[in-house]
């Protein structure tokens, strides 16, 4: 009688341990998959931003890689700041993210926040790209950084 009860206890202990272990592992696997999706999304959005025709530098119709036109970027920022619906129109492309252009050289510090839609999410994945900022007035290329913060759940 005692042996049977002992075996049953061990048996149920093993079942409970197995189920809890499996649940734990599934949860961790789900979190990993979710993290992977957010990371891939952040790269995809950063790539889209880098080639956004609204802010690109085109010389005689030829697009320059890693180049942003400062005047176009500031104009886009102004449009988004004055009209929220315009910013929402870009949601399918840029989703919940913040796009910032920062000038590094010459005169470090100037920042242009082109797009900012956080959806009150706090967990962000930042991606940085070195770029040049074209100033069509002075015909100069400044060195800067494109920061794309993508917000995850």
């Amino acid at each position: 009688m005692f042996e049977t009860i002992a075996i049953l206890i061990v048996f149920f202990f093993l079942i409970v341990f197995g189920v809890s272990f499996y649940t734990l592992m599934q949860k961790s696997s789900f979190e990993k998959e979710n993290e992977k999706n957010v990371q891939l999304k952040s790269v995809a959005i950063a790539q889209k931003v880098a080639y956004l025709p609204e802010t690109d530098c085109a010389m005689i119709g030829i697009q320059i890689d890693n180049c942003f036109d400062v005047h176009k970027a500031k104009a886009l920022q102004h449009i988004f700041q004055t009209d929220d619906t315009k910013q929402l129109a870009y949601f399918p492309i840029l989703e919940y993210s913040t796009i910032t252009l920062e000038r590094i050289y010459p005169h470090t510090g100037e920042k242009v926040v082109v797009y900012n839609l956080t959806g009150e999410r706090v967990r962000k994945i930042p991606t940085f790209y070195p770029i040049v900022l074209y100033n069509a007035t002075s015909k100069t290329f400044d060195f800067g950084v494109l920061e794309v913060d993508v917000y995850g759940t």
Binding site: K36, L40, V43, T127, Y129, I131, D142, F143
Partner: peptide, 24 residues
């Protein structure tokens, strides 16, 4: 997959940084 994003970004970083530097 924790370093997936870093891998993708780093593969382009050196090239885009050099290109941006010489164009400045």
């Amino acid at each position: 997959t924790s370093g997936l994003r870093e891998e993708v970004v780093e593969s382009e970083l050196a090239g885009s940084l050099l290109n941006a530097m010489v164009s400045t």
